[in-house]
């Protein structure tokens, strides 16, 4: 029976590595491009006066809420050695833009109404409570069902927000597609960075590995080092790509998670 030459197997291995490296680059690079389009669209909107900073004066939701994001979480008691901790995982996320009235410098007061599908960009920081709250949560967190909780962020009167409108305000009414509690431009820049980094690392890493693996003499010491690095690269670039995808998510899709540790003393 015809034996498979190692050169052919090497081509097969390098091909598999390249196909997957290119797909990771295409995936992360595609997301980088998409965020770039969003960035440019926002910049045009800012120039055209559709994206601006405003101060919330009145919220039309209950208790004067202008917008809110809530993330349901499930907490499970950690069973690894060490202090008692509860590990939280996100479940459902809910975003609501109730709208209200905002004071816009140079434009006066605007009534902001949410467009369908409007979203909120904001940071969510879990605030789980004190030592007593931990003691109360621990037994439930130690069951199969886990400890259900919720992290919330409400935007109310007095807060500064960035509002991106679908179109210029008409008769003092503005229809919002995005409300953000932080400047959206740096947010997008930060999100894009890991994506392009992963795309370049994917192609660059594959190129370096290929050069080393093909270093003469084939299957010699340098070539073998290239083969070893190739396997490490193939296995390592996948989590790098997944990390970049996660880091490149928009703020309304970012997970909250978190670990609640029993306070000592």
């Amino acid at each position: 029976m015809w034996q498979l030459p190692y050169e052919l197997m090497g081509v097969l291995a390098l091909s598999a590595m390249w196909v997957n490296a290119l797909l990771i680059a295409l995936d992360t690079g595609g997301r980088w491009v998409a965020l770039g389009c969003l960035f440019r669209e926002m910049r045009r909107a800012a120039k055209g006066g559709h994206l601006f900073k405003a101060q919330v004066v009145v919220g039309h939701g209950e208790e004067g809420v202008f917008a809110r994001r809530e993330v349901k979480q499930i907490g499970r008691a950690m069973t690894v050695p060490g202090p008692r901790r509860i590990l939280f995982t996100d479940k459902a996320t809910r975003i609501e833009i109730m709208g209200g009235e905002g004071e816009v410098p140079g434009r006066g007061r605007l009534v902001v109404k949410p467009e369908e599908g409007a979203t909120l960009w904001c940071e969510l920081k879990p605030q789980w409570g004190d030592a007593n709250a931990f003691e109360a949560a621990w037994p439930q967190a130690s069951t199969f069902q886990g400890y259900d909780t919720q992290v919330e962020r409400w935007v109310r009167a007095g807060e500064e927000v960035w509002v991106w409108l679908v179109e210029p305000p008409s008769k003092g009414i503005a229809r919002a597609r995005l409300v953000s509690t932080t400047d959206p431009f740096p947010v997008l820049r930060r999100a894009r960075l890991p994506l392009i980094g992963a795309a370049l690392a994917s192609i660059g890493g594959a190129a370096v590995v290929t050069i080393l693996a093909l270093w003469p003499p084939l299957f010699g010491p340098v070539s073998t080092l290239g083969g070893a690095l190739g396997l490490a690269f193939f296995l390592g670039i996948q989590p790098v790509g997944a990390f970049a995808r996660d880091a490149g998510r928009l703020p309304d899709q970012q997970p909250v998670g978190g670990v609640w540790q029993q306070s000592v003393g």
């Binding site: 196909v19 995936d27 996948q238 997944a242």
Partner: peptide, 14 residues
């Protein structure tokens, strides 16, 4: 189909 394991593999092990 080709790319799927590149994404769900890391998600799974994490």
């Amino acid at each position: 189909l080709i790319h799927f394991p590149n994404v769900v593999g890391p998600y799974t092990f994490r």
